[in-house]
Amino acid sequence: MRRRGSASMAALMLAPFTSLFVLFTLVPILSAVALGFFSFDMINPPRFVGFENYVRMLVDDSVFPIAVRNTLVFAFLTGPLGYVLSFLFAWLINELRPRIRAWLTLLFYAPTLAGNVFFLWLFLFSGDAYGLVNSTLMQLGLIQEPVQWLTDSRYSLGVVVLVMLWLSMGAGFLAIIAGFQGLSRELYEAAAVDGIRNRWQELWYVTLPQMAPQMLFAAVISIATSFAVGYQSMELTGFPSTDYATHTLTLHILDIGGIRFEMGYASALAFVLFAMMAVTWRGIETLFRRLAEGKGGK
């Protein structure tokens, strides 16, 4: 990448998107960030309160620490695992013939495409004796009483993690599938000549370095979804969940902003969630750069 063309050319090409972006995305985001320093109930005009909302999180909101904890648990369990799984499945699907590949991709992407995805899991983990998991375990004699998978705070978090992993074949997965289509055939031939011995070496030294941009994209998507678990937990375990066992920051924002109409505080919470994601992104970007340098650059 070097400087080519003029700065005015770049500006010209960026102009149409930038005007849309500033008006409909950036201004709303900046307004929300600013609103985090106000008290605003959507009826009376906003009143400036300084850092009061941020102080309230730390000293006067007993649900906030639970929401942060659960958000982090979801992020660090479903994020990396879902990421690795979506790469793994994309890689394996790519080994098959093109026609089969398109249909298998459809199947894997189906949870993101279909409307009523939670029915299946509600049926599996239903708390009565008819739920598939309960009835199977009871027939095997492993449990005597049905387990309340979705409302018992000991299990509900685990169930949501499982469903999130099942749902992780989304945008990142498709981007990786698409990325595989641009791989250079010559590099594989050269690598074979250079003594790449097995599929794992091929993956590590030839495939992954070429896929770095797509992997980075998938990483951002995976951060954006795994930190933002919310409606999935609501659909499965209710809102609010038992003992706030699966309550997350996203749900807390919905509760405060959408139900209690405290938009100022909700905006401050949204900013905290954003900051957590931005810091994680920064760490992952650095990790990617180190890996690339370690391999002799790309």
Partner: peptide, 28 residues
């Protein structure tokens, strides 16, 4: 494909905007 400080900053904003939750931006 172009290289400049400004474009690097622009790109950072592009990624950040993906990370901001829409729940509180719908009213603005």
């Amino acid at each position: 494909k172009y290289r400049s400080k400004w474009l690097d900053a622009y790109f950072l904003v592009v990624v950040w905007a993906i990370l901001f939750r829409p729940e509180v931006t719908s009213i603005p």
